[in-house]
């Protein structure tokens, strides 16, 4: 069927108990072959959504389809055809690298040789450690093995729930490079992450917070939708700087961004005006420049609006 979305989520809601609204009226579509990011902090509902799509949980309301199959009725078909890497890498610690791969290949009814091409450049890095127990691998290695296991049956859609959490920056970087290559092989990928800086590596992202979607778009468009003038400011005293900037009359918001403070303004003003304001408050080492808007700026703006 042409133009059928790989993942189609319509008005999904899910509650846990009476108190926790994990997902509220969530809708989005992922096109075949797309690398789609689900970006949001812990507790935003990312894992619940992943589990609903992988047929592990039932939604209270709404409908979802994967490859056109209904997640409730056609769960067996979906389970046969998708790959899933849960938040905690789901490996048997007391089995070797090879044994893990063999096990997951067989339970998905696949042969390693058949689909080895798909995982070659990931798994080849693990080959020297073939006989090592999974529990003895570093975080980055575990992550690669878990990804190999999720891919070995050549799934058409791949669900990755926070694959980069708890992994160091180097491994994170390598992991995203692997995802880019997989995308070129035509696999649809839905990946969730709490790291805003990873949003830029996806084709499209959904920003999610407290079970609601704040925005769905390409990273560039999300950044572009930030419509306030934004300055990056630093002085010698960060703590006083934040507090003082919040007293400035044209301030919309002031948040620390690393060693700078991003100051969003209600109306365009000359940086000199801000400089004078800070100098009057006895700041030293004042540096003011135009800031590059990041996904985080947009995310915070959307959070405060909703």
């Amino acid at each position: 069927m042409p133009n059928q979305p790989a993942i189609d989520v319509q008005n999904i809601s899910k509650r846990f108990g009476k108190q926790v609204q994990a997902l509220e009226d969530v809708s989005f579509q992922v096109q075949p072959g797309e690398l789609f990011g689900l970006i949001g902090p812990d507790g935003a509902g990312k894992t619940a959504l992943m589990r609903i799509l992988t047929t592990l949980l039932l939604a209270d309301e709404g409908q979802a389809r994967v490859n056109g199959w209904d997640v409730r009725k056609d769960y067996k078909l979906i389970r046969r055809n998708v790959g899933y890497m849960p938040g905690r890498f789901s490996l048997y610690q007391d089995l070797s690298v090879e044994e893990n791969l063999q096990f997951f290949a067989t339970i998905f009814g696949a042969a390693i040789e058949e689909n080895y091409g798909l995982i070659r450049d990931i798994y080849s890095q693990l080959e020297p450690f073939r006989t090592r127990k999974a529990g003895k691998l570093s975080g980055g290695m575990k992550q690669k093995l878990a990804l190999s296991c999720a891919l070995i049956h050549k799934p058409s859609v791949l669900f990755l729930d926070e694959p980069t959490t708890g992994v160091d920056a180097v491994s994170r970087h390598e992991f995203w490079e692997m995802l880019q290559r997989l995308r070129q092989k035509g696999i649809t990928i839905l990946v969730s992450t709490p790291y805003m800086d990873e949003a830029g590596l996806c084709e499209r992202v959904a920003l999610i917070q407290k079970g609601r979607i704040l925005s769905i778009d390409t990273p560039a468009n999300i950044v572009g939708s930030f419509d306030k003038p934004l300055l990056a400011i630093r002085t010698d005293n960060m703590y006083r700087l934040i507090n003082d900037l919040r007293q400035f009359e044209s301030t919309h918001s002031a948040y620390p961004f690393g060693d700078y403070v991003h100051l969003a303004l209600d109306r365009p003003i000359w940086p000199e005006a801000v400089h004078a304001f800070l100098a009057a408050r006895e700041h030293t080492g004042i540096e003011i420049k135009a800031a590059t808007v990041t996904i985080e700026d947009s995310f915070m703006e959307l959070m405060t609006r909703s």
Binding site: P41, A44, T165, P194, Q209, Y239, Y255, E296, M300
Partner: peptide, 16 residues
């Protein structure tokens, strides 16, 4: 790790 960006900044403000 894993906190939303606004809470993270509130947290860092406490540290500052």
């Amino acid at each position: 790790g894993g906190v939303d960006p606004i809470t993270r900044r509130q947290f860092w403000e406490m540290i500052y």
